[in-house]
């Protein structure tokens, strides 16, 4: 049990997927201008990443390994993620329309979110067991959401500030992300 808690803390804070491992930065900068879009994206990522983490682990260990075709991992994983996103979209549209209305437009964007693919690959690279992979996927996604929502708050404040013209928009956003990354950097060595 203690191991799992340690893993969770390490995935949320110490190895934060966005700010320390640099994965998923395109949606990070793209949707962090408004709090609502950031929250929607964060929820969609949590939803998809847990499913993707579990399914890709199963695909890797029960399909690719026994047949000795691990070199096809990239192709298999991206297909799993793309079809999973499509499937989740259809399922939500049909059965939980309220949730679909909230997440709808973010779901297609997740296919090319490298955080999702990245976490699935990290799960395999670190040789996690199924339970560990599940917890790592969930907590990496929570770390993603945490950083994204915090950063959206920062960016809403930046809008009110007077920023020199060349620094506006993405440029000041990246510098701000650097400062936040510095804050998360302080967790290093905690686990």
């Amino acid at each position: 049990m203690g191991d799992y808690i340690l893993l969770a803390v390490s995935c949320i804070f110490v190895n934060n997927i966005l700010l320390i491992q640099y994965l998923g930065n395109c949606p990070f900068l793209g949707v962090s201008k408004k709090m609502e879009t950031a929250t929607g994206m964060a929820m969609a990522v949590v939803f998809v990443l847990v499913l993707a983490g579990a399914i890709t682990w199963v695909v890797n260990h029960l399909l690719l390994k026994p047949f000795g075709v691990e070199y096809l991992r990239t192709l298999a994983f991206i297909l799993v993620i793309a079809s999973l996103v499509q499937f989740v979209e259809l399922f939500l549209k049909k059965s939980i329309p309220a949730l679909y209305a909230g997440l709808g437009i973010f779901l297609p964007l997740i296919t090319t979110n490298c955080a999702v693919m990245g976490v699935c690959l990290i799960n395999i690279k670190e040789e996690y067991s199924f339970m560990q992979a599940l917890i790592a996927s969930l907590t990496y996604a929570i770390g993603f959401g945490l950083a994204l929502i915090l950063f959206a708050g920062v960016r809403e404040r930046i809008l009110l500030a007077r920023v020199p013209k060349p620094l506006q928009d993405t440029s000041i956003g990246l510098v701000g992300a650097g400062m936040m990354s510095l804050a998360f950097f302080a967790f290093k060595g905690m686990v």
């Binding site: 620094l167 000041i172 400062m179």
Partner: peptide, 19 residues
């Protein structure tokens, strides 16, 4: 060379390119 520097560095380079 650490993570925060990467963000700040890219942000500043973007600023130079905008200028």
């Amino acid at each position: 060379v650490e993570a925060p520097g990467a963000f700040v560095c890219l942000g500043l380079m973007l600023c130079v390119m905008n200028m």
